[in-house]
Amino acid sequence: MTVAVVRFGGSNCDRDAARALSYLGIENEVVWHEDGLSEDVMGVVLPGGFSYGDYLRAGAMAARSPIMREVREAADAGVPVLGICNGAQIGCESGLTPGAFTTNESARFQCEPVHLRVERADTPWTARYEAGDVLEIPIAHGEGRYEIREDRLAELEADDRVLFRYCTPEGEVAPSSNPNGSRGAVAGVLGERETVAVLMPHPERATLPSVGTTDGGGILRGFA
């Protein structure tokens, strides 16, 4: 009964996610994608990185790898699944979550701290926060601009599936606080079930006290 951190070729935040989960006391193991998920897996992290070099679209190759069928089955069975950064791109490419992440407005890679507003607190990922809370968590991506058709975004909003939005330190959603031009300032969304979520910022980099804020630990505690 552990959380599987799935390592694809080119994943590079797998160890970091594992370290952060362990720090929180959540049992986990890094699983090579070819080895598949164990039957009693109790959670899945799709970690950040550059799976398959991101030589096609970010996440597109990993989304078509055999283990993603198992991830989808687990998700459908209610197992919590969290996609972070490249894992979020894989989540959207594989249809676990809606929309797509594409090239930043700046057309450059951006590694910087950002602020996120918690849009709803009644999910496993946000149960440790209040709606409206502002978290400081870093981003590190070149393709993190969330894109979706306007009408689909409206549907998502109506269904309350936007989990995090980029905001100012005061919690205001403004163009100046949107680091990559994401539509609706969306930083994270839910799948069809609220046990499935993806986000571009890195909660595992905001968990260990020695390396920055600890605002992201609550998201990972969604597996606890």
């Binding site: 590079n12 935040c13 160890r15 970091d16 370290r19 952060a20 950040g48 450059r108 890679f109 951006q110 590694c111 910087e112 870093p138 590190a140 890195h202 595992e204 980099r205 968990t207 260990l208 020695s210 390396v211 920055g212």
Partner: peptide, 14 residues
């Protein structure tokens, strides 16, 4: 410059 470099991967950079 350094914003374009991932300077935090590895969760060691304090």
């Amino acid at each position: 410059v350094y914003r374009q470099y991932d300077h935090e991967v590895g969760v060691r950079t304090s």
